[in-house]
Lab assay of single mutants.
Amino acid sequence: MGFKLLSKLLVYLTASIMAIASPLAFSVDSSGEYPTVSEIPVGEVRLYQIADGVWSHIATQSFDGAVYPSNGLIVRDGDELLLIDTAWGAKNTAALLAEIEKQIGLPVTRAVSTHFHDDRVGGVDVLRAAGVATYASPSTRRLAEVEGNEIPTHSLEGLSSSGDAVRFGPVELFYPGAAHSTDNLIVYVPSASVLYGGCAIYELSRTSAGNVADADLAEWPTSIERIQQHYPEAQFVIPGHGLPGGLDLLKHTTNVVKAHTNRSVVE
């Protein structure tokens, strides 16, 4: 069995187990497998329904001669939608809004960016022009300005110390501490036991640490421990890039980060 097929099978099995364990909360999309990078042309966006009122959005972007996937989250909030992270750029984010209108038909009224990198804030200006209120932590807003990236308009308070959590509509926002970046936030959907790890969490097929220019490698494993301790009931975990899975993604990420750190020390 090929690795790609095995990865998709694991996603399907995880979703099936969740649907059985929580039949009222989960209505997993039966329309197909989780979209992969090879299936999404740059400039297009796919939506994948995880649970009743919960979707991931998947886009792709060219970077350094390669094409990478990027995940975000959409959560229903009454007759409105909360968006977590842009679709990595203005063109993708405009396509995301169009796809949401086509498939869901509810307005996106608020959006949260989970850290300051372009795959999370690139497209904020498109959201703002569409009347979406954009939010991020003060740290993310400051770092985005320093980096020359787009800056969300509103500040999220109460997320300055490791372990801080605040309720934001249908989700809980959690600051686990520094990891992929010093400002990275985690998003949890309690009604569906869905954990969105953003770039602080890796997919299972990833074996290298990737972009760690703004990471705190020493603190990252401790931050992941905080996530595990705060959300032990999480059933569906979405990484910032690639295929979702279960809580095993947290341990896998820790292993990859520690291996990278150990290699760096040896070198």
Rank of each mutant, 00 (worst) to 15 (best):
G2K: 10
F3G: 10
K4C: 09
L5W: 14
K8G: 08
L9M: 09
L9G: 11
L9E: 15
V11L: 08
T14A: 07
A15G: 08
A15I: 14
S16N: 06
I17H: 07
A19N: 15
A19S: 15
I20Y: 08
S22I: 10
P23R: 12
P23W: 14
F26R: 14
F26N: 10
S30F: 12
S30G: 15
G32D: 09
E33P: 09
T36Q: 10
V37L: 15
S38Y: 12
E39H: 11
P41T: 12
P41V: 13
G43F: 07
V45R: 03
V45Q: 05
Y48T: 14
Q49H: 12
Q49K: 12
A51T: 12
D52N: 12
V54K: 02
H57F: 04
I58K: 04
I58P: 02
F63W: 06
D64R: 12
D64M: 15
D64S: 15
D64Y: 15
A66I: 15
A66Y: 15
S70K: 03
L73D: 03
G78K: 08
D79Q: 10
E80N: 08
L81I: 12
L82T: 08
L83E: 00
L83W: 02
D85E: 01
T86D: 00
A87F: 00
A87I: 01
A90M: 09
K91Q: 15
N92R: 01
A95N: 13
L97G: 00
L97F: 02
E101Y: 11
K102S: 13
I104C: 00
I104A: 00
T114A: 02
T114F: 01
H115A: 00
F116T: 01
F116P: 01
V121A: 04
V121L: 06
G122I: 04
V124H: 06
D125K: 09
D125Y: 10
V126T: 09
R128M: 13
R128N: 13
A129H: 11
G131C: 06
T134P: 01
S139Q: 12
T140G: 04
V146R: 14
P152E: 01
H154G: 09
H154C: 06
L156M: 08
E157Q: 13
G158T: 06
L159E: 02
L159S: 04
S160T: 13
S160R: 12
S160I: 11
S161I: 12
S162D: 11
S162V: 10
G163Y: 05
A165H: 12
F168R: 02
F174W: 02
Y175E: 01
P176S: 03
P176N: 01
A178Y: 08
A179H: 02
L185S: 05
I186W: 03
V189M: 02
V189Q: 01
S191D: 12
S193E: 13
V194L: 09
L195T: 01
Y196A: 03
Y196T: 01
G198A: 07
C199P: 02
C199G: 02
I201D: 05
E203S: 04
L204K: 14
L204I: 14
T207V: 13
T207W: 08
A209S: 09
N211Q: 08
V212P: 01
A213L: 13
A213P: 09
D216P: 02
E219N: 08
W220R: 03
W220F: 04
P221D: 06
T222D: 14
T222E: 12
S223D: 01
I224V: 12
R226L: 09
Q228R: 11
Q228A: 12
Q229W: 11
H230D: 07
Y231C: 06
P232M: 08
A234V: 08
P239Y: 03
P239N: 03
P239T: 02
G240P: 05
H241F: 04
G242V: 05
L243A: 15
P244M: 09
P244W: 09
P244A: 06
P244R: 02
D248K: 09
L249R: 01
L250E: 04
L250H: 06
H252M: 04
T253Q: 00
T254S: 11
N255W: 13
K258I: 09
H260I: 07
T261P: 14
N262P: 10
S264A: 12
V265C: 05
V266Q: 13
V266K: 12
V266W: 12
